[in-house]
Design a protein around this nucleic acid. Structure first.
Lengths: 191, 191
DNA sequence: ATTATATTAGACTGGTCGGTTTAATTATTT
DNA sequence: AAATAATTAAACCGACCAGTCTAATATAAT
């Protein structure tokens, strides 16, 4: 109990660094140096080492992104505007040095989906919760269940891909183009 | 000249393994063992080591995917059908063990966009050539230049994101949902 | 046949990796 | 104050990393 500040600081540093460089691209020593935490503490809080820390970091990253999405939907009851707002905020954040977005979950998922089951499962749960949040909001806005689910998957995929394109090209244009397409995607057609 | 089979085999092995496990997740020894090529040959053909091999592998992967896209567009003049066909083929290939898709370019791009400029640039050129191919085909099918470009970006992002979701969830459903949405995306509206 | 060049072979290096260990220290409880 | 538990500290480990090096061997050119 009391104040597990060290554990939280460790997860936050790991979340940030894994987001930016992936699982294999960051060493435990990097994370410890970055957060000024001794190695003994890491293995005290995470006896299973890097994998266990990564799973905690993935859940933390998931929560951060969930809050971002939620915030955009709180500002308007129009889901089109909310999704566009979320994408625009991502575009603004991409080059932020204080809380860099990196490629949240995506990098670790791409690296480890076939070789580390606990990490893959953690990434899957992040994607699923993000998708569920979208779908819930779409249903609240009057979309059918089927449409809400399909649109959730589609929006999530387009945003993940858009982040990857924007990071790789060092240019947010891809994300902005995707945001512009959102109104045409989220129609209430019946299919 | 003569027969640089060794070099080609090296690039093919590197392309496959980087696609599956990313840049940091595969060691040079892994690649050499997988292709039965001695280390001396690697540094003979690629004096700059892992980075230079990775750039060659990225270009090779780019060409493979370009050929896949081209093939789908050769089978029909309807771009909607072509894109859907391409996505369905990706879904079929995801679990293929002989030529596994992995997350082509995406993993390396996500890992190294901020820390290795030659690799980032190679990944950018891959994304751009894929996008250009889509756009060219859309223009041939009568879309405006603006639409062709925006749709190219959008389709590329959705497919990249869809692959990532399908790999992470070990389920091609995400890709199939995206394929189903394609007809509604690629309308010839003027904007 | 001789020379020159391209390629293969793998032992070796310094450094870093994730992880372990043991002891010292700090905080909490009684 | 004493005893117990939680936390910190850093030296240390074997494994593996990318990259180097030198010699052997094959191939091509003359």
């Amino acid at each position: 109990m009391s104040k597990p500040n060290t554990k939280v600081a460790l997860i936050e540093a790991a979340s940030r660094l894994f987001r930016l460089h992936g699982y294999e691209g960051i060493s435990l020593n990097d994370i410890l140096k970055n957060s000024n935490i001794p190695k003994g503490s890491l293995y005290h809080y995470f006896p299973n080492g890097k994998e266990e820390l990564a799973v905690a970091a993935i859940h933390h990253t998931k929560d951060i992104v969930l809050a971002w999405i939620e915030k955009s939907f709180e500002q308007t009851s129009n889901p089109v505007e909310a999704v566009q707002d979320h994408i625009h905020q991502l575009a603004d954040l991409l080059n932020d040095e204080t809380e860099p977005v990196g490629f949240p979950i995506g990098t670790i998922a791409a690296e480890k989906y076939s070789t580390n089951e606990p990490i893959r499962a953690a990434c899957q749960s992040a994607f699923e919760e993000w998708r569920e949040l979208y779908s819930t909001k779409f249903i609240e806005a009057g979309y059918s269940e089927k449409l809400a689910k399909d649109y959730g998957v589609f929006i999530l995929a387009a945003i993940e891909g858009g982040i990857l394109l924007s990071l790789t090209t060092k240019n947010v244009e891809s994300l902005l183009i995707i945001a512009d397409q959102i109104p045409f995607i989220l129609s209430k057609r019946e299919n």
